[in-house]
Design a protein around this nucleic acid. Structure first.
Lengths: 216, 216
DNA sequence: TAGATTGTTAATCGATTAACAATC
DNA sequence: TAGATTGTTAATCGATTAACAATC
Protein backbone atom coordinates (compact mmCIF):
# COMPACT_ATOMS: atom_id res chain seq x y z
CA UNK A 1 0.00 0.00 0.00
CA UNK A 2 3.02 2.30 0.42
CA UNK A 3 3.21 5.03 -2.15
CA UNK A 4 6.38 4.90 -4.18
CA UNK A 5 6.24 8.62 -4.80
CA UNK A 6 6.53 9.24 -1.08
CA UNK A 7 9.94 7.64 -0.98
CA UNK A 8 11.52 10.13 -3.30
CA UNK A 9 11.57 13.44 -1.53
CA UNK A 10 9.18 15.64 0.41
CA UNK A 11 6.35 16.94 -1.72
CA UNK A 12 6.23 20.65 -2.33
CA UNK A 13 4.53 22.94 0.16
CA UNK A 14 2.13 24.12 -2.51
CA UNK A 15 0.95 20.58 -3.10
CA UNK A 16 0.86 19.73 0.61
CA UNK A 17 -1.49 22.66 1.07
CA UNK A 18 -3.74 21.63 -1.80
CA UNK A 19 -4.30 18.10 -0.56
CA UNK A 20 -6.61 19.06 2.32
CA UNK A 21 -8.73 21.09 -0.08
CA UNK A 22 -9.08 18.10 -2.38
CA UNK A 23 -10.08 16.00 0.59
CA UNK A 24 -12.60 18.57 1.79
CA UNK A 25 -14.29 18.89 -1.58
CA UNK A 26 -14.34 15.17 -2.23
CA UNK A 27 -16.11 14.75 1.11
CA UNK A 28 -18.64 17.38 0.08
CA UNK A 29 -19.25 15.70 -3.25
CA UNK A 30 -19.64 12.38 -1.50
CA UNK A 31 -22.20 13.94 0.83
CA UNK A 32 -23.98 15.37 -2.20
CA UNK A 33 -24.35 11.82 -3.48
CA UNK A 34 -22.20 12.33 -6.58
CA UNK A 35 -21.46 9.01 -8.27
CA UNK A 36 -18.25 10.19 -9.82
CA UNK A 37 -15.75 13.01 -9.61
CA UNK A 38 -13.78 14.32 -12.56
CA UNK A 39 -10.52 16.20 -12.44
CA UNK A 40 -12.36 19.09 -14.07
CA UNK A 41 -15.15 19.24 -11.53
CA UNK A 42 -12.79 18.96 -8.58
CA UNK A 43 -10.53 21.60 -10.08
CA UNK A 44 -13.44 23.99 -10.43
CA UNK A 45 -14.34 23.54 -6.78
CA UNK A 46 -10.88 24.04 -5.37
CA UNK A 47 -10.09 26.85 -7.82
CA UNK A 48 -7.61 24.95 -9.88
CA UNK A 49 -7.11 23.50 -13.34
CA UNK A 50 -7.87 19.91 -14.22
CA UNK A 51 -4.29 19.50 -15.39
CA UNK A 52 -3.05 20.41 -11.96
CA UNK A 53 -5.39 18.00 -10.23
CA UNK A 54 -4.22 15.17 -12.47
CA UNK A 55 -0.60 16.14 -12.06
CA UNK A 56 -0.96 16.34 -8.27
CA UNK A 57 -2.59 12.94 -8.09
CA UNK A 58 0.11 11.54 -10.33
CA UNK A 59 2.82 13.05 -8.13
CA UNK A 60 1.19 11.42 -5.12
CA UNK A 61 1.36 8.00 -6.73
CA UNK A 62 -1.96 7.93 -8.55
CA UNK A 63 -5.43 6.82 -7.54
CA UNK A 64 -7.24 3.77 -8.87
CA UNK A 65 -10.42 5.49 -9.95
CA UNK A 66 -12.42 8.63 -9.43
CA UNK A 67 -15.32 7.28 -7.42
CA UNK A 68 -15.78 9.63 -4.48
CA UNK A 69 -15.27 6.88 -1.90
CA UNK A 70 -12.14 5.61 -3.57
CA UNK A 71 -10.81 9.14 -3.72
CA UNK A 72 -11.76 9.93 -0.16
CA UNK A 73 -10.13 6.76 1.00
CA UNK A 74 -6.99 7.38 -1.00
CA UNK A 75 -6.69 10.97 0.26
CA UNK A 76 -7.29 9.83 3.85
CA UNK A 77 -4.39 7.43 3.48
CA UNK A 78 -2.19 10.14 2.07
CA UNK A 79 -3.13 12.61 4.80
CA UNK A 80 -2.57 10.02 7.49
CA UNK A 81 -6.05 10.30 8.94
CA UNK A 82 -6.83 6.62 8.91
CA UNK A 83 -5.40 6.41 12.42
CA UNK A 84 -6.50 8.46 15.41
CA UNK A 85 -4.42 11.46 16.42
CA UNK A 86 -4.14 12.34 20.07
CA UNK A 87 -3.50 15.95 20.84
CA UNK A 88 -2.95 18.20 23.83
CA UNK A 89 -3.40 21.94 23.82
CA UNK A 90 -0.97 24.15 25.72
CA UNK A 91 -2.53 27.43 26.78
CA UNK A 92 -6.10 27.71 28.05
CA UNK A 93 -6.60 31.31 26.99
CA UNK A 94 -9.10 32.42 24.40
CA UNK A 95 -7.21 30.91 21.54
CA UNK A 96 -6.72 27.61 23.31
CA UNK A 97 -10.37 27.48 24.21
CA UNK A 98 -11.39 28.29 20.65
CA UNK A 99 -9.27 25.43 19.35
CA UNK A 100 -10.74 23.06 21.89
CA UNK A 101 -14.27 23.96 20.99
CA UNK A 102 -13.52 24.05 17.28
CA UNK A 103 -14.65 20.56 16.52
CA UNK A 104 -14.43 20.66 12.73
CA UNK A 105 -11.58 18.19 12.87
CA UNK A 106 -13.12 15.71 15.28
CA UNK A 107 -14.63 13.64 12.47
CA UNK A 108 -11.20 13.18 10.98
CA UNK A 109 -9.97 11.34 14.05
CA UNK A 110 -8.29 14.14 15.98
CA UNK A 111 -8.89 14.07 19.71
CA UNK A 112 -7.92 16.58 22.35
CA UNK A 113 -7.03 14.72 25.52
CA UNK A 114 -5.90 17.52 27.82
CA UNK A 115 -5.16 21.22 28.13
CA UNK A 116 -2.15 22.62 29.97
CA UNK A 117 -1.89 26.04 31.52
CA UNK A 118 0.37 27.87 33.93
CA UNK A 119 -2.57 29.35 35.78
CA UNK A 120 -2.82 27.10 38.81
CA UNK A 121 -6.35 28.30 39.47
CA UNK A 122 -7.44 26.22 36.49
CA UNK A 123 -5.57 23.08 37.57
CA UNK A 124 -8.06 20.26 37.94
CA UNK A 125 -10.91 22.15 36.30
CA UNK A 126 -12.36 21.53 32.87
CA UNK A 127 -12.53 23.75 29.81
CA UNK A 128 -15.19 22.75 27.31
CA UNK A 129 -15.16 19.28 28.77
CA UNK A 130 -11.39 18.84 28.62
CA UNK A 131 -9.36 18.58 31.84
CA UNK A 132 -6.90 21.37 32.53
CA UNK A 133 -3.52 20.37 33.95
CA UNK A 134 -0.58 22.29 35.32
CA UNK A 135 1.88 22.96 32.52
CA UNK A 136 4.69 21.97 34.89
CA UNK A 137 3.47 18.40 34.50
CA UNK A 138 3.58 18.39 30.70
CA UNK A 139 6.85 16.44 30.46
CA UNK A 140 5.52 13.85 32.81
CA UNK A 141 2.23 13.64 30.93
CA UNK A 142 3.89 13.16 27.56
CA UNK A 143 6.09 10.42 28.96
CA UNK A 144 3.03 8.56 30.21
CA UNK A 145 0.44 9.23 27.48
CA UNK A 146 0.91 8.64 23.81
CA UNK A 147 0.48 12.03 22.19
CA UNK A 148 0.84 12.73 18.50
CA UNK A 149 0.39 16.46 18.28
CA UNK A 150 1.00 19.34 20.68
CA UNK A 151 -0.98 22.49 19.97
CA UNK A 152 0.80 25.64 21.12
CA UNK A 153 -1.62 28.41 22.07
CA UNK A 154 0.67 30.30 24.42
CA UNK A 155 2.36 33.69 24.28
CA UNK A 156 5.39 33.91 22.00
CA UNK A 157 8.01 33.84 24.71
CA UNK A 158 7.29 30.30 25.92
CA UNK A 159 6.56 28.69 22.55
CA UNK A 160 10.12 27.55 21.97
CA UNK A 161 10.18 25.98 25.41
CA UNK A 162 6.99 24.03 24.72
CA UNK A 163 8.45 22.87 21.42
CA UNK A 164 11.45 21.45 23.29
CA UNK A 165 9.17 19.63 25.68
CA UNK A 166 7.21 18.24 22.75
CA UNK A 167 10.41 16.96 21.16
CA UNK A 168 11.59 15.41 24.42
CA UNK A 169 8.17 13.85 24.80
CA UNK A 170 8.50 12.12 21.44
CA UNK A 171 5.58 13.94 19.90
CA UNK A 172 5.35 13.81 16.10
CA UNK A 173 4.02 17.25 15.32
CA UNK A 174 3.41 20.73 16.65
CA UNK A 175 0.55 22.95 15.55
CA UNK A 176 1.80 26.36 16.54
CA UNK A 177 -0.42 29.42 17.00
CA UNK A 178 2.12 31.55 18.86
CA UNK A 179 3.57 34.33 16.71
CA UNK A 180 7.04 32.83 16.39
CA UNK A 181 8.48 30.84 13.52
CA UNK A 182 9.17 27.41 14.93
CA UNK A 183 11.03 25.11 12.57
CA UNK A 184 10.47 21.51 11.58
CA UNK A 185 13.42 19.17 11.88
CA UNK A 186 14.10 15.43 11.77
CA UNK A 187 12.59 15.06 15.22
CA UNK A 188 9.32 16.89 14.69
CA UNK A 189 7.01 18.41 12.12
CA UNK A 190 5.82 21.95 12.76
CA UNK A 191 2.92 23.82 11.24
CA UNK A 192 2.89 27.52 12.08
CA UNK A 193 -0.46 29.24 11.76
CA UNK A 194 0.22 32.96 12.32
CA UNK A 195 -3.24 34.48 12.28
CA UNK A 196 -1.89 38.02 12.39
CA UNK A 197 0.28 37.37 9.37
CA UNK A 198 -2.73 36.25 7.44
CA UNK A 199 -4.55 39.47 8.33
CA UNK A 200 -1.54 41.48 7.23
CA UNK A 201 -1.44 39.61 3.94
CA UNK A 202 -5.07 40.55 3.43
CA UNK A 203 -4.28 44.14 4.24
CA UNK A 204 -1.39 44.03 1.79
CA UNK A 205 -3.63 42.77 -1.00
CA UNK A 206 -6.21 45.46 -0.29
CA UNK A 207 -3.50 48.10 -0.32
CA UNK A 208 -1.94 46.71 -3.48
CA UNK A 209 -5.27 46.80 -5.29
CA UNK A 210 -5.96 50.37 -4.24
CA UNK A 211 -2.63 51.64 -5.49
CA UNK A 212 -3.04 49.69 -8.64
CA UNK A 213 -6.51 51.04 -9.34
CA UNK A 214 -5.72 54.65 -8.59
CA UNK A 215 -2.63 54.67 -10.77
CA UNK A 216 -4.02 52.95 -13.84
CA UNK B 1 5.72 57.69 -2.37
CA UNK B 2 3.86 55.27 -4.66
CA UNK B 3 5.79 52.13 -5.48
CA UNK B 4 6.34 51.65 -9.17
CA UNK B 5 6.59 47.91 -8.77
CA UNK B 6 3.03 47.83 -7.49
CA UNK B 7 1.70 49.09 -10.80
CA UNK B 8 2.93 46.12 -12.77
CA UNK B 9 0.97 43.11 -11.63
CA UNK B 10 -0.03 41.46 -8.39
CA UNK B 11 2.93 40.16 -6.43
CA UNK B 12 3.17 36.41 -6.02
CA UNK B 13 1.38 34.71 -3.16
CA UNK B 14 4.65 33.38 -1.83
CA UNK B 15 6.01 36.90 -1.51
CA UNK B 16 2.76 38.28 -0.12
CA UNK B 17 3.00 35.71 2.63
CA UNK B 18 6.62 36.52 3.42
CA UNK B 19 6.04 40.23 3.88
CA UNK B 20 4.25 39.93 7.24
CA UNK B 21 7.10 37.78 8.55
CA UNK B 22 9.61 40.42 7.53
CA UNK B 23 7.52 43.02 9.28
CA UNK B 24 7.19 40.93 12.41
CA UNK B 25 10.90 40.28 12.70
CA UNK B 26 11.87 43.85 11.94
CA UNK B 27 9.58 44.92 14.80
CA UNK B 28 11.28 42.42 17.08
CA UNK B 29 14.72 43.65 16.10
CA UNK B 30 13.60 47.21 16.64
CA UNK B 31 12.36 46.27 20.11
CA UNK B 32 15.69 44.60 20.78
CA UNK B 33 17.34 47.92 20.09
CA UNK B 34 19.26 46.78 17.02
CA UNK B 35 20.83 49.73 15.21
CA UNK B 36 20.84 48.01 11.86
CA UNK B 37 19.36 45.03 10.07
CA UNK B 38 21.13 43.10 7.35
CA UNK B 39 19.54 40.95 4.69
CA UNK B 40 21.50 38.05 6.19
CA UNK B 41 20.27 38.55 9.74
CA UNK B 42 16.67 39.04 8.67
CA UNK B 43 16.88 35.99 6.42
CA UNK B 44 18.13 33.87 9.29
CA UNK B 45 15.21 34.94 11.45
CA UNK B 46 12.50 34.31 8.90
CA UNK B 47 14.13 31.10 7.67
CA UNK B 48 15.21 32.43 4.33
CA UNK B 49 18.28 33.30 2.32
CA UNK B 50 19.76 36.78 2.15
CA UNK B 51 19.42 36.66 -1.63
CA UNK B 52 15.71 36.14 -1.30
CA UNK B 53 15.31 39.00 1.14
CA UNK B 54 17.14 41.35 -1.20
CA UNK B 55 15.23 40.09 -4.21
CA UNK B 56 11.91 40.49 -2.38
CA UNK B 57 12.72 44.05 -1.34
CA UNK B 58 13.82 44.80 -4.87
CA UNK B 59 10.58 43.39 -6.28
CA UNK B 60 8.65 45.60 -3.87
CA UNK B 61 10.38 48.70 -5.15
CA UNK B 62 13.37 48.83 -2.84
CA UNK B 63 13.96 50.41 0.55
CA UNK B 64 16.20 53.39 1.22
CA UNK B 65 18.27 51.85 3.97
CA UNK B 66 18.29 49.03 6.46
CA UNK B 67 17.76 50.94 9.68
CA UNK B 68 15.02 49.10 11.56
CA UNK B 69 12.74 52.15 11.70
CA UNK B 70 13.13 52.83 8.00
CA UNK B 71 12.39 49.21 7.26
CA UNK B 72 9.44 49.05 9.62
CA UNK B 73 8.06 52.17 8.10
CA UNK B 74 8.54 50.97 4.57
CA UNK B 75 6.94 47.61 5.32
CA UNK B 76 4.03 49.31 7.07
CA UNK B 77 3.44 51.33 3.95
CA UNK B 78 3.56 48.24 1.80
CA UNK B 79 1.22 46.31 4.07
CA UNK B 80 -1.21 49.20 4.22
CA UNK B 81 -1.15 49.49 8.00
CA UNK B 82 -0.46 53.18 8.14
CA UNK B 83 -4.21 53.75 8.17
CA UNK B 84 -6.68 52.27 10.64
CA UNK B 85 -8.74 49.28 9.59
CA UNK B 86 -12.25 48.93 10.87
CA UNK B 87 -13.57 45.42 11.12
CA UNK B 88 -16.70 43.59 12.11
CA UNK B 89 -16.88 39.95 13.07
CA UNK B 90 -19.80 37.83 11.92
CA UNK B 91 -20.44 34.90 14.22
CA UNK B 92 -20.19 35.17 18.00
CA UNK B 93 -19.40 31.50 18.58
CA UNK B 94 -16.13 30.27 20.02
CA UNK B 95 -14.14 31.15 16.97
CA UNK B 96 -15.63 34.62 16.71
CA UNK B 97 -14.96 35.23 20.37
CA UNK B 98 -11.40 33.99 20.04
CA UNK B 99 -10.78 36.41 17.19
CA UNK B 100 -12.27 39.27 19.16
CA UNK B 101 -10.11 38.58 22.16
CA UNK B 102 -7.06 37.88 20.04
CA UNK B 103 -5.58 41.32 20.25
CA UNK B 104 -2.23 40.66 18.62
CA UNK B 105 -3.26 42.81 15.72
CA UNK B 106 -4.59 45.77 17.69
CA UNK B 107 -1.22 47.54 17.66
CA UNK B 108 -1.21 47.43 13.89
CA UNK B 109 -4.33 49.59 13.68
CA UNK B 110 -7.01 46.95 13.32
CA UNK B 111 -10.16 47.62 15.32
CA UNK B 112 -13.19 45.45 15.82
CA UNK B 113 -16.27 47.66 15.97
CA UNK B 114 -19.08 45.14 16.24
CA UNK B 115 -20.03 41.48 16.24
CA UNK B 116 -23.04 40.07 14.42
CA UNK B 117 -24.88 36.91 15.29
CA UNK B 118 -28.16 35.24 14.43
CA UNK B 119 -28.79 34.35 18.05
CA UNK B 120 -31.24 37.04 19.12
CA UNK B 121 -30.52 36.29 22.77
CA UNK B 122 -27.17 38.02 22.28
CA UNK B 123 -28.59 41.08 20.55
CA UNK B 124 -27.65 44.15 22.52
CA UNK B 125 -25.21 42.32 24.77
CA UNK B 126 -21.45 42.56 24.68
CA UNK B 127 -18.81 39.95 23.95
CA UNK B 128 -15.37 40.80 25.26
CA UNK B 129 -16.38 44.43 25.29
CA UNK B 130 -17.71 44.48 21.74
CA UNK B 131 -21.43 45.03 21.11
CA UNK B 132 -23.33 42.15 19.53
CA UNK B 133 -25.89 43.00 16.88
CA UNK B 134 -28.51 41.03 15.00
CA UNK B 135 -27.02 39.73 11.78
CA UNK B 136 -30.20 40.77 10.00
CA UNK B 137 -29.02 44.35 10.44
CA UNK B 138 -25.60 43.78 8.85
CA UNK B 139 -26.51 45.35 5.50
CA UNK B 140 -27.87 48.39 7.24
CA UNK B 141 -24.80 48.63 9.48
CA UNK B 142 -22.36 48.43 6.58
CA UNK B 143 -24.26 51.13 4.73
CA UNK B 144 -23.97 53.44 7.71
CA UNK B 145 -20.53 52.64 9.11
CA UNK B 146 -17.34 52.63 7.17
CA UNK B 147 -15.99 49.09 7.45
CA UNK B 148 -12.86 47.83 5.80
CA UNK B 149 -12.84 44.17 6.66
CA UNK B 150 -15.54 41.62 7.46
CA UNK B 151 -14.40 38.61 9.45
CA UNK B 152 -16.47 35.51 8.74
CA UNK B 153 -16.62 33.15 11.71
CA UNK B 154 -19.87 31.43 10.82
CA UNK B 155 -20.75 27.91 9.73
CA UNK B 156 -19.92 27.06 6.12
CA UNK B 157 -23.44 27.28 4.78
CA UNK B 158 -23.90 31.00 5.37
CA UNK B 159 -20.39 32.16 4.50
CA UNK B 160 -21.20 32.85 0.86
CA UNK B 161 -24.18 34.91 1.90
CA UNK B 162 -22.08 37.03 4.25
CA UNK B 163 -19.56 37.53 1.48
CA UNK B 164 -22.33 38.93 -0.73
CA UNK B 165 -23.42 41.29 1.99
CA UNK B 166 -19.82 42.40 2.44
CA UNK B 167 -19.53 43.13 -1.27
CA UNK B 168 -22.83 45.02 -1.31
CA UNK B 169 -21.65 46.96 1.73
CA UNK B 170 -18.56 48.12 -0.14
CA UNK B 171 -16.16 46.39 2.19
CA UNK B 172 -12.61 45.98 0.92
CA UNK B 173 -11.68 42.61 2.33
CA UNK B 174 -12.97 39.44 3.91
CA UNK B 175 -11.04 37.36 6.41
CA UNK B 176 -12.77 34.03 6.17
CA UNK B 177 -12.60 31.31 8.82
CA UNK B 178 -15.53 29.24 7.54
CA UNK B 179 -14.42 26.04 5.80
CA UNK B 180 -15.37 27.13 2.29
CA UNK B 181 -13.14 28.53 -0.44
CA UNK B 182 -14.38 32.05 -1.02
CA UNK B 183 -12.74 33.77 -3.95
CA UNK B 184 -11.28 37.22 -4.37
CA UNK B 185 -12.51 39.28 -7.29
CA UNK B 186 -12.35 42.87 -8.51
CA UNK B 187 -14.83 43.89 -5.85
CA UNK B 188 -13.21 42.36 -2.80
CA UNK B 189 -10.08 40.70 -1.47
CA UNK B 190 -10.53 37.42 0.39
CA UNK B 191 -8.15 35.64 2.71
CA UNK B 192 -9.27 32.13 3.62
CA UNK B 193 -7.80 30.71 6.79
CA UNK B 194 -8.94 27.06 6.94
CA UNK B 195 -7.67 25.91 10.30
CA UNK B 196 -8.65 22.30 9.63
CA UNK B 197 -6.71 22.28 6.39
CA UNK B 198 -3.63 23.39 8.22
CA UNK B 199 -4.01 20.53 10.71
CA UNK B 200 -4.42 18.10 7.83
CA UNK B 201 -1.29 19.44 6.18
CA UNK B 202 0.55 18.80 9.43
CA UNK B 203 -0.86 15.30 9.55
CA UNK B 204 0.22 14.76 5.96
CA UNK B 205 3.78 15.81 6.73
CA UNK B 206 3.92 13.51 9.75
CA UNK B 207 2.59 10.65 7.67
CA UNK B 208 4.98 11.39 4.82
CA UNK B 209 7.96 11.36 7.17
CA UNK B 210 6.93 8.07 8.73
CA UNK B 211 6.60 6.31 5.40
CA UNK B 212 9.81 7.82 4.26
CA UNK B 213 11.73 6.74 7.35
CA UNK B 214 10.36 3.23 7.46
CA UNK B 215 11.12 2.58 3.80
CA UNK B 216 14.67 3.91 3.67
C1' DT C 1 41.60 51.03 3.09
C1' DA C 2 39.57 46.34 3.37
C1' DG C 3 35.55 43.65 4.34
C1' DA C 4 31.05 43.26 4.28
C1' DT C 5 26.66 44.23 2.29
C1' DT C 6 23.65 45.83 -1.11
C1' DG C 7 21.07 46.25 -5.75
C1' DT C 8 20.43 44.16 -9.89
C1' DT C 9 21.02 41.00 -13.76
C1' DA C 10 21.55 36.37 -15.29
C1' DA C 11 21.29 31.34 -14.43
C1' DT C 12 19.02 27.62 -12.36
C1' DC C 13 15.62 25.17 -10.57
C1' DG C 14 11.00 23.67 -9.74
C1' DA C 15 6.13 24.05 -10.35
C1' DT C 16 2.31 24.70 -13.53
C1' DT C 17 0.44 24.11 -18.00
C1' DA C 18 -0.06 22.00 -22.39
C1' DA C 19 -0.34 18.14 -25.25
C1' DC C 20 -1.81 13.83 -26.58
C1' DA C 21 -1.98 8.74 -26.82
C1' DA C 22 -4.42 5.40 -24.04
C1' DT C 23 -8.56 4.40 -21.60
C1' DC C 24 -13.09 4.74 -20.06
C1' DT D 1 -18.79 3.92 -31.71
C1' DA D 2 -17.83 8.75 -30.40
C1' DG D 3 -16.84 11.90 -26.74
C1' DA D 4 -14.94 12.73 -22.73
C1' DT D 5 -11.45 11.88 -19.36
C1' DT D 6 -7.32 10.12 -17.67
C1' DG D 7 -2.11 9.27 -17.04
C1' DT D 8 2.13 10.79 -18.36
C1' DT D 9 5.73 13.26 -20.85
C1' DA D 10 7.35 17.54 -22.59
C1' DA D 11 7.18 22.63 -22.77
C1' DT D 12 6.57 26.82 -20.46
C1' DC D 13 6.53 29.83 -17.04
C1' DG D 14 7.77 31.88 -12.75
C1' DA D 15 10.25 31.90 -8.49
C1' DT D 16 14.60 31.15 -6.13
C1' DT D 17 19.47 31.25 -6.23
C1' DA D 18 23.88 32.72 -7.79
C1' DA D 19 26.98 36.13 -9.18
C1' DC D 20 29.20 40.31 -8.99
C1' DA D 21 29.97 45.30 -9.69
C1' DA D 22 28.75 49.23 -6.89
C1' DT D 23 28.30 51.01 -2.33
C1' DC D 24 28.65 51.31 2.45
Amino acid sequence: MGNKALNKKALSDALARRLPAYYRHVCIMLAEGKQTVTSGELAKRVGNTSAQVRQDFFTCGGVENYHPDTLKNWLSDLLGIKEEHHMVVVGAGNLGRAIISFKDFNNDGFFIDAVFDNNLMLDGMQVCGIPVLNVATLDEYLAANRTDIVVIATPANVAEDILDKAIRGGVKGVWNFAPVDLRSNEAIEVQNVHLSDSLLTLSFRINEKEHWKSEN
